[in-house]
Amino acid sequence: MTSPAAAAAPRLTTGGRPTAIPKSRPATPRERLSSLTTHIALIVFSVIAFLPFFSMFLVSLYPADQPAVGIALPRELNFGNYARAWDVTNFATLMTSSAIVALVVVPLGTILCILTGYAFGAMRFPGRNLLFFTFLFGLLMPFEATIVPLYYDLRAFGLVNTYAGLILPETALFLSFGTFWMRAHFLSTPRALVEAARIDGANSWQTLWRVLLPSAWPAITTMMVLFFIWSWNEFLLALVLMTDKSVQTAPAGLGLFIGEHTKDSSGLAAAAVLMSIPCLIVYVVLQRHFIRGVTSGSVKG
């Protein structure tokens, strides 16, 4: 997500891939020591980043009478927690709702952001800056307050408790970021590419899809992964706008579990693990592209 920013404030020093590091020269002792320190530090921070998840995973396997106390191995493995969590929260329904929302939000948001990013990044037109700021607005405002008017506005459109009622505002919020991100990408595209296409007689639409898009995939993949994660984890909008059980999404369902079954810590942990699985799968499968995209994807200065 950061790369949008990094891209928008582009670095002029180098271009593209990390500068090749000379491998021929043997490492000096100072460098070896430093490399060791780096590894130790990275390992320490990785452990810290991972610890809460690890402890939660352990708890999700506890037998019913083992309290969630500190880090401790399960006395015996109890996979029944997962079955219980699945049943109690009616997870199949929750997951279906979440999936429906995410599977519309991600492509819809992606297509719209490609279009806006292209317009802002590769074209010049009056009111460009004002419009761009309009798009950025959603990134800065604290959302806790606008949700009250949003609820009434959506109700006026008859959208409360419908999938559209969650999908549309969610997409609109993500557009702020996505526009920002894709604009940064298209800004960094060599101008010559666009001009060449134009000389070949391509119109703007053809230029976008045939010439620019193929090289934009890393940036798009990253954005899609982020959209998926955000959509899947969205809590407050889902809580307020989807009050009907049949359309509730997974985080709201976990909220119900927290409210009702806090003393069932192993069941709660299992529910938490279950609801994280889709995001983890997407993240793990795409993480190579994703992390590269986040860190350098569109930083092409």
């Binding site: 109700r155 409360v160 307020v240 059980k245 409210g259």
Partner: peptide, 18 residues
């Protein structure tokens, strides 16, 4: 339709005014 009590009390006005 059952909600966790804390969530329920926060959203009931919205729900009933629909």
């Amino acid at each position: 339709d059952v909600k966790a009590f804390a969530d329920y009390s926060k959203t009931i006005n919205l729900v009933m005014s629909g």
